[in-house]
Design a protein around this nucleic acid. Structure first.
Lengths: 202, 202
DNA sequence: CTGCGAAATTGCAACCTGTGCATAAAAGCA
DNA sequence: TGCTTTTATGCACAGGTTGCAATTTCGCAG
């Protein structure tokens, strides 16, 4: 990572990133144009696209890191570990990874989370990323659980993430705090692990 | 629905719809511009947006119908019916609703399904619709299952749909036929109903 | 049939994202 | 200092989308 060149590139990238995040936070996502971001970072508008493939991409930088964190947990499955425990550990790793945003002085995740609620374009992007990630998680799961076929692994990952996500979403729509949403997600995990049939007899 | 006016409006709408679908099928989604669609339907480009909010919207017309079909199944829950059976019936109603596309001479669903695999913009749109629908399904479920709190209902719906979707997605990525994908979805439902823990001991 | 008002259609201008291309500016190296 | 590889930029343009104003069409009352 040596060289004046590398450092300058990193500085420009960071300037764009910080400008974008600041403007998104100040005026909102739609109200901020790529030209605004470039101006705030003191580069030409065209240059923005040399660093980020799209305006949305600024907010989904660490997606690969987070996926990697989840894949590592799966790869490190303890012998005989139940699926539910493994995936729960995966989720906790994800939460930790979200809390420990690097690359910026401040946390990017809360802003992204907030904007994903209000901006359809960002919600769509986040969902797409998640949907692309899940088959890869399923594949990894398949490799450490020989007794699972790919479809079952997909069902496991999808059921787990779906329950988690929608439970959290409902909690959030009820006006719950961040902690409420997280707790709802954990409850969703229980339901996924025990099965919907477990809800039939309370 | 009387009147020359209404009929003409319906005809224009239909012309746009059929032109769009035909062009999407012939040249692909990205390769078809709104201007092309308007020209094929013999209206001004600007008029397209009087009938459809966006280019994507053409392909997601019956989304409300399908949601309604699912909500009706939930509302018609048989007393004491297990959650798994109810949601399975809901899914079969969805499949039926997809197979019986109205509004066009031909089936819109296969094209939409095909394009959603290849076109990121359409995949994103479909996911967004599904994610917006699920909390409403959860609400409806809550109303017919007094023993469920909203978060649990969300977990049930999310787990069910997530398992279904990702199991089907994996099957499709393995190169399975449409029937294979459907079968995988049904297997996903089993997993969701019985719980991930049921996969621990084969 | 005639004319008035509402609704539909259209054209125009503009904004925004994103891309291709060519060129200038800068940095590393000989 | 020259040469080469990046990087930054400017320009033009395609395509989706919206707002506005003008115009056409339709339905209906007189």
């Amino acid at each position: 990572m040596e060289g004046h060149r590398e450092r300058k590139k990193a500085r420009t990238r960071r300037a764009l990133l910080e400008a974008a995040v600041r403007l998104f936070a100040e005026r909102g996502y739609e109200q901020t144009t790529v030209a605004d971001i470039a101006a705030a970072a003191d580069v030409a508008p065209r240059t923005f696209f040399a660093y980020f493939a799209s305006k949305e991409d600024v907010l989904f930088l660490q997606a690969e890191d987070r996926e990697r964190a989840m894949l590592e947990v799966i790869a490190g499955r303890r012998p005989g570990e139940p699926l539910g425990e493994l995936l729960s550990r995966m989720f906790e790793a994800l939460v930790r990874s979200l809390a420990a945003d690097d690359e910026l002085d401040f946390a990017l995740s809360p802003l992204r989370a907030r904007l994903m609620v209000t901006e359809p374009a960002l919600r769509a992007r986040g969902l797409t990323l998640m949907m692309e990630t899940q088959p890869r998680l399923a594949w990894a799961l398949c490799e450490v659980c020989p007794e699972l076929d790919p479809v079952e692994a997909g069902a496991a990952v999808g059921g787990f993430m779906g329950a988690l996500a929608v439970a959290g979403l409902v909690a959030q729509q009820q006006g719950g705090s961040d902690d409420d949403v997280l707790a709802a997600g954990r409850r969703g995990i229980e339901v996924a692990v025990n099965g919907l049939s477990s809800l039939d007899r309370p």
